[in-house]
Write a protein that binds this DNA or RNA. Structure first.
Lengths: 332, 332
DNA sequence: GTGAAAGCGCTAACAT
DNA sequence: ATGTTAGCGCTTTCAC
């Protein structure tokens, strides 16, 4: 049988409240009794029942995490960070895979509410006003991770995509590359131009280059999409460089170029985004914008813990350092 | 305020027991009253509190999943399957990342027990007797996913690694390749030769080739490990083919060969294992053993649900079909 | 077929 | 500083 608070109380010759006080440090207990209780707890191997605890406190030690796809290196690494740091604060992770569909996201928000999760980490490729509304109405404290989280008045963690994109584009420009194809994620949902696109535009402008519509493509963030886009582009014209907004996309692009018999980077330079593990596995190795993915997850959960504790947060948006990692897919 | 069973009872003019009966279908309720209760539930948007429910039933609708690494394509895809199918059966996923360390695994087993999870999916690269013991003692029903799960008398899902490995090695042999380097995972923990290694040996034997110790290497399952192993090998001798027991490893191997100025597959053929998403992203594309990863997860959770329901399971070990996927990394 | 009541293991007033 | 007690929201005997 599992040992309960009652057993401990009886065994230690005290009331259950005293035991409760000891395990929660909620009220002063004389040192003598505390030691006695602790001893019994240790001896019996008592572990407080979190379910009973949740029932009365109406809070669990569980944090819901909604992600758009588990089989994605970015998400996986993110969860590593969320999970590991969450564990330090004694929180568990209840994982929900929405596959990026709004319907599922709403279902999960309700589910998590009924589960009385303490808080929520909401990860999305592109978040919307509607989602924020739904989460706010549920009264679940949340921290967001999304490319466009900056556009909302919510707690969020990420990098400065504008700067990163600007710096990357400028790097290509400095290498003498002019005709730069930009591949962005499909923008349905997003309010305005993405930060990344803005950064791209700013860099071009500094070089007095106009944004050519033919040089801005969009699609989902998969390698096959990158492959198809690039294949089609190469049938019509040949850019000098491609800036893809994630690594998989970039690899798809690179493969399309390679399969066409062209060389990367000699004929066309390619740069990716994220620096997931595959970025250094390709040949040529991919030059890419490194996001500190694990840290984003870690900081995110720390932020949530703070919010849950009612601590004051100076800035709702936290931006971590990024880095343009120079490898072999951009001409030197 | 959230609406409780009491509210529904009052509103419907019945007792809470009756409400409980209709929501659980646990005992007959007159149709008239049932309709009335259902109507109130619908109108008020009542959702039973799963926490309170767990407290009394001592079971939750949560399934614990212990994995060795989230940022791994194999694991990610597996979780997709587990999560999606689990959801169908109304189970949630409580995710635990053990980083492959025994200590964490044991901590999680205890944690999950205290959380009163309904069941457990235990994923490990290489499971041990000790782990099985710990899980059995915890009394949590579990299904295992591990290369060597077959060696234990537990519920498990996977593919027939012996056959797959045999077929793959034979394929290389048939292509005229003789000096085949086999890279296995580090074998501490494992009782005997792995199924995969046995398959490799059987194929060699059929061709009257003796297993050469220099041609069997081991290490962890990362690309960098594969790279290092291969780099060192190439300093001493040149195999005709390499059979790596996962894709990342294989890609590391391939890169070491490429970086040395040799060609894949002309100089050396390489074959991987798993067919994760990166397998078709490399150039040359990787020939590999496809495991139906998503399905393994899906079948696994279905099996667990059955076990939890007390259904009879004809065979504790379920093996799904695998397939040797021919791409470009093996000479034709 | 339905209701009253006990109790799951715990926390948090309220007493003392 | 410690004990008593009332629930948290639900399931489940046990009566009727």
């Amino acid at each position: 049988m599992t040992v309960t608070i009652k057993d401990v109380a009886r065994e230690a010759g005290v009331s259950i409240s005293t035991v409760s006080r000891v395990i929660n440090n909620s009220k002063p207990v004389s040192n003598e009794i505390r030691q006695k209780v602790l001893e019994v707890i240790k001896r019996t191997g008592y572990v407080p029942n979190p379910v009973a605890r949740s029932l009365v406190t109406k809070k669990s030690q569980t944090i819901g995490v909604i992600v758009p796809d588990m089989s994605n290196l970015f998400i996986g690494e993110l969860i590593n960070g969320i999970e590991e740091v969450g564990r330090i604060y004694n929180y568990d992770i209840l994982l929900c895979n929405s596959y990026g569909t709004e319907e599922e996201e709403f279902r999960y928000i309700n589910l998590l509410k009924s589960k009385q999760v303490a808080g929520l980490v909401f990860v999305s490729w592109n978040m919307t006003e509607k989602q924020v509304k739904a989460i706010e109405e549920s009264n679940i404290k949340a921290v967001y991770i999304s490319k466009n989280a900056k556009d909302f008045d919510v707690y969020s963690v990420g990098i400065n995509h504008f700067d990163a994109s600007y710096e990357t584009t400028k790097h290509l420009l400095e290498k003498g590359l002019r005709k730069i194809l930009f591949i962005r994620s499909s923008i349905e949902n997003t309010i305005a131009d993405s930060e990344r696109f803005k950064g791209y535009k700013k860099a071009l402008k500094e070089y007095d280059i106009e944004v050519d519509k033919d040089y801005v493509k969009q699609g989902d963030m998969t390698s096959s999409c990158g492959y198809e886009i690039m294949k089609k582009v190469l049938e019509n014209y040949t850019p000098e460089a491609v800036f893809a907004t994630n690594d998989e996309l970039a690899i798809g692009v690179m493969n399309a170029i390679l399969d066409k018999g062209l060389d990367v980077p000699k004929d066309i330079s390619v740069v990716g985004y994220d620096d997931t593990r595959i970025a250094s596995l390709t040949r040529p190795k991919l030059t890419t914008v490194r996001q500190p993915i694990y840290d984003i997850g870690a900081v995110c959960i720390r932020m949530l813990v703070k919010v849950l504790a009612g601590e004051e947060i100076s800035d709702k948006r936290v931006e971590l350092p990024y880095k343009l990692v120079l490898r072999d897919s951009v001409i030197d």
